[in-house]
Design a protein around this nucleic acid. Sequence first.
DNA 1: TTTAAACCCTATAGCGACTTCATGGTCAAG
DNA 2: CTTGACCATGAAGTCGCTATAGGGTTTAAA
Lengths: 154, 154
Amino acid sequence: MRIGELAKLTGIEVETLRYYERVGLVQLPARQTNGYRAYGQDAIERANFIRHCRTLDMGLGDIKRLLDFTSKPDADCFDVNHLLDEHLARVRAKLKSLRTLEKQLARLRTQCDTGHRAADCGILQDLVAAAHGEACACHPSDGNASLSNRKAHE
Amino acid sequence: MRIGELAKLTGIEVETLRYYERVGLVQLPARQTNGYRAYGQDAIERANFIRHCRTLDMGLGDIKRLLDFTSKPDADCFDVNHLLDEHLARVRAKLKSLRTLEKQLARLRTQCDTGHRAADCGILQDLVAAAHGEACACHPSDGNASLSNRKAHE
DNA sequence: TTTAAACCCTATAGCGACTTCATGGTCAAG
DNA sequence: CTTGACCATGAAGTCGCTATAGGGTTTAAA
């Protein structure tokens, strides 16, 4: 099987498959005489495993660790639980901050329904007011809120 | 005012301010004879505007567009609404997929409570089963679900 | 007065997970 | 025999920073 077919079967793009190979997620496949990559059936399974974990938004490092586990049946799977717990915690934190954000944006959005000139735009006024430290529709009383949840994986 | 003071006043790190300058979000400040950046009061306001928009998770491109609006009082602010609507839509889409994800992960997490050997780990079994296309705890009946909500600005 | 800490500068590389680009080789159909 | 689909490599671009290297300047204490 060549790389295009594997891509079609798994829904992972060709360039992404090559990228996964480069970073060591996918083992080096055999090569045909012309240099084309030649995959076996096992590559489909491994690629699907990766894809499924990616739909669960796991990082490539985590996926690599899980793949290692699948080939070591006698290892202690405590780390699998732990990895999943951490991931779940990250997802929940992100979810929380996103819910707050949604409320803020929705409230901000209600500020401009009348004027059409930028000078009269309630949204812009609100954002400028925020720059002055005044209360605004999106951060009413406030103090702080989120920010800083940017580097947390993703 | 030097860059360090501006950083302290706005809560934006020095390196980040220089980065904003490099990408054109902050205008080039005057320079002292020793080459140090010299900011005026207006820089504080502009920087706070940026910071506030960033807490709302807006992209730098969007913020740039908003900043342009604040200096063009006669422009039609339709685009401001539009920009905010799009951003809100992105946030809501992300929120939706994250909620689904949370459920999937939580369910998956229940799969491993008994065994300690990787070979017996319900989580790994589940993930491998998914690679085979079978139903799994995280994607019960399935068909597909999300994926592809990765590039949407964040 | 010396010296050390704290500040400032530029340029460059790194992160994660890709995507895109440039450039060229291989192969099957018409 | 050429067109177009496929394959290859390597390098650069994306986003929003963050960090590092390797310097110069200012300030305050010893």
